[in-house]
Design a protein around this nucleic acid. Sequence first.
DNA 1: GTCTATAAAGTGATAGAC
DNA 2: GTCTATCACTTTATAGAC
Lengths: 213, 213
Amino acid sequence: MSSDINLKELSRGFKTKKSILASSLALFSSNGFKATTVRDIANSVGVKQSALYNHFKNKDEILETLIEELMTSAIANIFTPKDSPSERLHGKSMLLSISTTFKLISFDIKNEALFKLLIQEIYNNERVREIYNEYFYQTNVKKLSSILFEMMQNDTIRSNDPLILANEFFSPLFFYQMQISLLKQDKKSTSAVVSLFEKHVDFFWDNIKSERC
Amino acid sequence: MSSDINLKELSRGFKTKKSILASSLALFSSNGFKATTVRDIANSVGVKQSALYNHFKNKDEILETLIEELMTSAIANIFTPKDSPSERLHGKSMLLSISTTFKLISFDIKNEALFKLLIQEIYNNERVREIYNEYFYQTNVKKLSSILFEMMQNDTIRSNDPLILANEFFSPLFFYQMQISLLKQDKKSTSAVVSLFEKHVDFFWDNIKSERC
DNA sequence: GTCTATAAAGTGATAGAC
DNA sequence: GTCTATCACTTTATAGAC
């Protein structure tokens, strides 16, 4: 809203910087960071390669900028969207909501590219591992675990180790997401895997809910 | 066994070829294929880079050879070890055996390297995706699914879609295996995740077994 | 089969005009 | 901020002596 932000967005330079990041993400995620040259990026943006150096110190800085975006992307924020305290969901609906948020990541172009970048660079880049582990895995599993613990207190679900349950709920979602991105890579149908997101919730809920027999 | 195999193994050339593959696997899996130079490989083997070309047409052929090894590695053969018809396991023991085989992959240096190579190259290399999908995912999920179907016939487990169950059993194992390889990368403790392999079987079995209430 | 030497192309990054 | 030009270096791969 403040006018200087609009000025920034309209200026040529800012548009180029954004464009460099967008092109780089697309190229890195489909060809890998190391296999992508600064010339590839420049061609994709529509400028000469030397122009990139007005916006980034070097090629690594482009990657680092993208990696930091992982933290604020949907990939690292499975909960926030529907976790507003007023309309907070309960029980199975809450799990279904998480599962759906997870599923939708694969169908947003930017999030999907960030996910592919994450997987490809996770063994080579310590910062990627750090963000994955801290902001994606640990945070979400702990949050999930405390929600499940609450449910045990309410007798909504049976008593069990919440951390194990959280891992059991989380891991198939991650795997299915990866499956979808692989199928899309080869332009294969994703419908069978997409349906597993809901079926996972059914299966999981059936095992933890307290009203038994 | 036969003497010509021993002669082969003793000859200088054969040893070099094996050494190139071993060094390449180690380097590719920890630094990535593209980031590893033929010089790196040659240095690791202890020969000059030009010597590599007496054994492989080019750098790509080294990768291709390693990729084909994925097919015959433990990664693609979760079942075979203990699936000898005579001493075939049943019910939960069978699932536990699969889980253990899975877990042990992460603790065999070569299998772990192949797994890391698989993950790193899966988005860049179509053949890797093909082997992953056909020989790792599809084959094992289908095999598992037919075993589960048998169990339903025997009334050992409750009636359900066997393919969904197979995916639900398979996906956490894959995820936990990846977690372990990431923890090892940073020399962190893996014990918490290692214990999840067994706990997953418990949790899963509890949900599918037929003797209820 | 391994070596030295070298070709041929690619790559990241900088300098300086506009 | 973008361009042309260029540098310094790396990388894959080949040629030919031993």
